Simulated scan of single mutants.
Amino acid sequence: MLEWAIKHHQSSLREGHVEVDQWKGHSIGVNRCRMKMGLILTGVGDKVMRLWSAESYKCLGEYAIPHAVSLIDYDFDESKIVGLIGTRISIWRRGGQRSIFPSREGTFPKGLCLRYLDPEAVVGCEDGTVRVFDMYSRKCSRIIRMHSAPVTCLSLSGEQLIFSSSSLGSITISGLSSDERVATLRPNDRIGVKALCFNPCSSLVFAGCASGYASCWDLRC
């Protein structure tokens, strides 16, 4: 079924009409781009994030990144942007106010990726763990061992599941509250996973590897 769907999609791209919209959002390259709820958030390259309407391509807000730190990853919802800057978490309110989590030495070693699902932010770390932070108490509530190698990508589901990939190519699914491992997925090409996405509508997990190949799993099977 999956092979048929891929062939059908390829055929549609070759024979169908495709419109491509393009606009210049930053003065230099964009390193991060995420789309949610009809909004597109871009940034990192020139030390600023910009929020765009996916319908009108109008810039709805601009958010500065503090000097002397780099924005590693971010996620957002309708009211705020949650970003991983250096070894700390920062929150940008849509109204413009910004706050940074208090510095606590050893809270997490080195964060490589972040996902946010109210009220929790999940940080994937270099030591193979994920740190779960409560956004209201601003404390680390759980540390979950996911891999024996650095966590490169994360995805969250509304059913309290964490999807994480490692630099060795494996994908682990664990419970967000129970810490119980649900499943392990292994792409045919195990060169580090660079992109990971779970689609709750279709129950499909997509992973893109550094070699240029993509894999897909149906969790209903």
Rank of each mutant, 00 (worst) to 15 (best):
P150W: 06
S148P: 00
E159Q: 14
I162D: 13
S148Y: 14
S141T: 15
S165K: 11
P150T: 11
L161V: 05
V132E: 06
G158V: 00
L154S: 08
S167M: 14
H147Y: 02
R145Y: 01
S155K: 04
T172S: 15
S137A: 11
C140D: 12
M146Y: 02
F133A: 02
R145E: 15
I171S: 00
I143Q: 12
S137N: 11
L156F: 07
C153Y: 01
S157G: 10
I171C: 11
H147C: 00
C153D: 12
S170V: 06
S164C: 03
Q160H: 14
I171A: 09
M146Q: 08
S137I: 12
V132G: 07
R142F: 05
S167T: 15
S166Q: 03
M146N: 03
S174E: 04
S167V: 12
D134V: 05
I143V: 15
S174A: 15
I144P: 00
S141L: 13
S157E: 01
R138T: 06
I171Y: 08
S170Y: 04
S157Q: 05
V151P: 07
I144F: 10
S165L: 13
S165N: 13
S170R: 07
P150K: 05
M135G: 01
G169N: 02
S155N: 04
L156K: 09
F163R: 04
M135V: 08
V130D: 00
S167E: 14
I144H: 12
L154W: 00
L168T: 15
I162M: 12
F133K: 01
S157K: 09
C140G: 08
S165H: 06
S164M: 06
R131Q: 14
V151K: 09
G158M: 04
F163P: 05
H147S: 05
K139A: 13
S157T: 06
V130A: 00
L154H: 07
C153R: 13
S164E: 00
I171V: 15
T172E: 13
I162A: 09
R138Q: 15
G158K: 09
H147G: 10
S167H: 14
R138E: 11
K139W: 01
V132Y: 01
L156C: 08
S166F: 04
S166N: 06
D134F: 05
P150H: 08
L161G: 02
M135N: 01
S141P: 00
S170E: 15
S167D: 10
I143R: 13
R138C: 06
M146I: 01
S157A: 02
L156A: 11
S157W: 04
S155F: 05
A149D: 10
S155P: 02
S167L: 14
G169V: 02
G158W: 03
T152Q: 12
F133S: 05
L168K: 14
F133T: 02
V132K: 09
Y136F: 14
I143G: 01
R142E: 12
S157D: 10
I173C: 13
L156H: 10
R142L: 11
G169Q: 06
E159I: 03
I162C: 10
S165G: 13
R145K: 11
M146V: 03
G175H: 10
I173S: 10
G158A: 10
V130H: 02
G175Y: 03
D134G: 00
F133M: 10
R138Y: 06
I143H: 02
G158E: 06
I143K: 14
I171N: 09
G169P: 00
V151L: 09
S167C: 14
F163E: 07
G175K: 12
S141V: 15
R142D: 07
V132C: 12
Y136S: 10
R142N: 07
